[in-house]
């Protein structure tokens, strides 16, 4: 009680300027805490307004993801230059990336997603080739491009999608779920 009295006395002693400064600081703290809370607690509160339900996974995939027995590491090899050289692939690349993000969100931390831009002559490029990701040669671009996925588990199991072909767009979720299973 004594402490409380001291506290109210301290508040009463503040000048108007100090009072306003304190209020601003408190508002800022409140803002950050509300957002951290919302980010953690309201994570699943979402509405998918896309026609093809890009952000919504089928029930089978969701069950499978929540029952994953071992951690998986997904590496999406996507060259930055690809969407510039082939703009028609841009929305497909967004979709692949979004769906992989949903997989990682649903898997309770069992899936780590890494999006890698393998630059020419880099270690990342060597590793992509090592996984068996296909090089794509485009007419307008000097360097080969990559647009594929490699999945590894904690032991030596690995599987890949060497190239995301637009022909397979309709079966994207099927292909990904088969890869993860």
């Amino acid at each position: 009680m004594d402490r409380f009295a001291k506290f109210t006395h301290w508040i009463g002693g503040l000048s108007r300027r100090q009072m306003i400064g304190t209020s601003i600081a408190l508002c800022a703290v409140l803002f950050i805490s509300v957002n951290i809370f919302a980010g953690r607690a309201l994570d699943g509160w979402r509405a998918d307004v896309t026609e093809t339900q890009v952000w919504t996974l089928s029930e089978g995939t969701e069950t499978l993801l929540s029952d994953l027995s071992e951690p998986l590491h997904l590496r999406l090899y996507l060259s930055d230059g690809l969407t510039e050289a082939a703009p028609q692939l841009a929305s497909y690349a967004d979709r692949v990336r979004g769906m992989l993000q949903s997989y990682a969100d649903q898997a309770d931390g069992q899936i780590t997603l890494e999006v890698i831009d393998p630059e020419p002559f880099s270690d990342a490029e060597d590793r992509a080739v090592g996984f068996g990701i296909n090089r794509i040669s485009l007419a307008g671009a000097a360097e080969p491009m990559f647009f594929g996925l490699a999945a590894t588990n904690s032991t030596d199991g690995r599987s890949t999608i060497p190239i995301f072909s637009p022909d397979r767009e309709a079966w994207l979720e099927y292909d990904l779920t088969r890869l993860v299973a």
Binding site: N35, A38, L42, D43, R46, A47, V49, W55, G98
Partner: peptide
């Protein structure tokens, strides 16, 4: 803008 309206975004 990719069609996913999330509560944390609106709150943010």
């Amino acid at each position: 803008t990719q069609g996913l309206i999330e509560a944390p975004t609106l709150i943010f």
